[in-house]
Amino acid sequence: MKRSILYILSLLFAGLFAVESCKKQDGGSGAPTPLTFTVPDGFPAPVYTFENNTPTEQGFQLGKKLFYDGRLSKDGNFPCASCHQQFAAFATLDHPLSHGFDNQFTTRNAPGLFNIAWMKTLHWDGGINHIEVQPLAPLEATNEMAETIDNVIAKLKADATYRQMFKAAFGEGEIDSQRMLKALAQFVAMIVSNDSKYDRVKKGQATFTIAEESGYKIFQAKCASCHTEPLFTDDSFRNTGLALDDVLKDYGRMRITGDPADSLKFKVPSLRNVFATFPYGHDGRFYSVGAVIDHYRSSVINSATTDPLVKNKIPISDYEKLDLLSFLETLTDSTLINNTRFAANE
């Protein structure tokens, strides 16, 4: 009789286990911690709304680990962060073009990564239509990270820490490119720049100097139609009258649309953190903000697609230039640049 009681008990346990294993399929335990994405006061509604990718602390941390992990590149040397350095507002400091696999250069200047959630398209030519698929471009480009999606997924699957982190962020199921990309989007979209001196002045927490105030007025009169506040870009594509580089032969937006009307047009970059991200221009040809202003003052090249707003050059006096530079310096967001939340763990 004792044996039969044991038998019944063990069956009972087996039954409980089976029911438990059924339950697990619809959720499981240890739900990830939700994160909120806050739209700063005065900012428009973001383009990326984390649709089908609810941000969580676990997803963000996984995205950050991926962002700083060289294993996403072929030889291990080129994580996302190799071209997107936090101290440069996630651009590449002091490099017109960034370095990639096998001593190669990229073909364009790495843009800063902040306020990406407000971008309708990504890249200088707008070729990328969604933040989640952007990492595939550098990952597969043979002169950048030079990897394949399948290789990267295999490396992640082979790593116990990643297996645990993917599970914590997304629950049961295989590691795949979709989950990797969603995690990266959670990290990158959370990088928001809204705490520069300019922002604090707007909130009434700081005041411009006389030069900054004067520069702001000049900015609003002569620059703001393209570099629209508060993002300091209108996210459009324009030909600003730069000469075609004979080596790069980069026609910008036309490469994507095939439309001659888009020849030599490039995305208007944000001027936030402009003093942290030199050099400037789609190919990094300008080594100082002053040099960019000089271009608009004196060396705009007119062609069929040159933007009407710069066609006749922009008259800016030497005095105005100095004040303008003072104002643009107020766009540096030290809070973002020093925020350890976005820095590599270690």
Partner: peptide, 11 residues
């Protein structure tokens, strides 16, 4: 619509 999976996996 961003990252897809299954037969639409960019891999």
């Amino acid at each position: 619509s961003g990252a897809q999976s299954g037969d639409l996996d960019p891999g």
